[in-house]
């Protein structure tokens, strides 16, 4: 029993059995987070390094807490305060880190494919914490964990993903993951921000946000990534909110008890109203707790066992 590779780069090439193993392992991990003493000795003496070339609060903290709850040591490297600012290349930075004895490198990088590049050049495990517009697999895993915990299954559920699909690595990983697990994925967003040919991944592109939400069991709202928008693709905040923002009225089209999800940070009043974000159907805060549990599961599965991988 275990994962097939030394790394987690994306969900594109993962099997349903592997996803199920990660989600099944995250359950017992969540119980540890609820304890008064949030620590088990499993990864004592192992080191996890987080290397972030982009801003992050949730993901980085989540990985570091996950490692600490399992008794691993953690070191954080922020590009702005490291030798990266002196022009050191990603590969050289990583090689040096690995030479210091890290067991896992958690990487966030603005370039798609950065994690894969690193994984190929290092013997230690690499976890992709977001690479450009490519994938953010642990976010999708925590999304699926949250849905499975609430709904009891993923197979056959209708999942609507709303927003800027083009720039969203979360959307990409969610699409792979949910489809592998047998959910039906629908997309809606500004037509300029829906990649051409995305239907080939087995998803349905809807013309309106209403069409996507109708009867959905999960409404997963993406963040508008202003830092990635290019001229002419984005309609403007007010128009976006009117066309695609999730209001209580729009949410009422979904199946009864549908879950509202968001990877954070929320632009309140833009992609969803505060009423929806803080409403009874919102599981946004639970997503954050589950994120720690899922990352604990992943760390255990990647480096908790024998060294002969």
């Amino acid at each position: 029993m275990g994962l097939s590779g030394k790394d987690l780069i994306g969900l594109r090439d993962i099997t349903a059995e592997e996803i199920k193993l990660i989600l099944d392992t995250a359950g017992p991990m969540k119980e540890i987070i609820a304890r008064k003493i949030k620590k088990v000795p499993t990864l004592r003496g192992r080191t996890v390094i987080t290397v972030f070339y982009e801003a992050s609060t949730r993901t980085r903290t989540s990985f570091e807490l996950a490692a600490k709850y399992l008794s691993a040591d953690t070191v954080g490297l922020a590009a702005a305060t490291s030798s990266v600012s002196k022009g050191e290349s990603l590969k050289d930075t990583a090689r040096n880190i690995a030479a210091m004895g890290a067991d896992v490198v958690v990487l966030r990088h603005p370039m798609s494919g950065a994690a894969e590049l690193l994984a190929r050049s290092l013997n230690v495990s690499v976890i992709n914490a977001g690479d450009g517009a490519h994938e953010h697999p642990t976010q999708a895993l925590l999304d699926m964990y949250t849905v499975r915990e609430k709904k009891g299954r993923l197979d056959g559920l209708k999942v609507a993903i709303i927003g800027d699909i083009l720039h969203s690595r979360v959307a990409r990983s969610d699409i792979w993951g949910y489809t592998i697990m047998g959910s039906e994925v629908r997309l809606a967003g500004p037509s300029t921000l829906i990649p051409a040919g995305i239907e080939k991944l087995g998803v349905r592109v809807c013309r309106t946000v209403e069409e996507a939400i109708e009867g959905a069991d999960v409404v997963n709202v993406l963040r508008i990534q202003m830092e990635r928008q290019q001229q002419g693709l984005f309609p403007g905040l007010r128009e976006y909110s009117r066309m695609f923002g999730i209001s209580p009225e729009r949410l009422s089209l979904a199946a009864p008890g549908a879950l509202v999800m968001h990877p954070g940070p929320i632009n309140r009043g833009v992609e969803m109203s505060s009423e929806v974000a803080d409403g009874l159907q919102s599981v946004i805060c639970e997503q954050v707790t589950n994120g720690v549990a899922v990352r604990m599961a992943l760390l255990y599965l990647l480096i908790g066992g024998s060294e002969q991988k």
Binding site: M1, Y300, G304, G305, S306
Partner: peptide
């Protein structure tokens, strides 16, 4: 854990 050939499943 580091000497086992197969990683044991974590249960609740």
């Amino acid at each position: 854990l580091t000497t086992l050939a197969h990683q044991p499943l974590v249960r609740s």
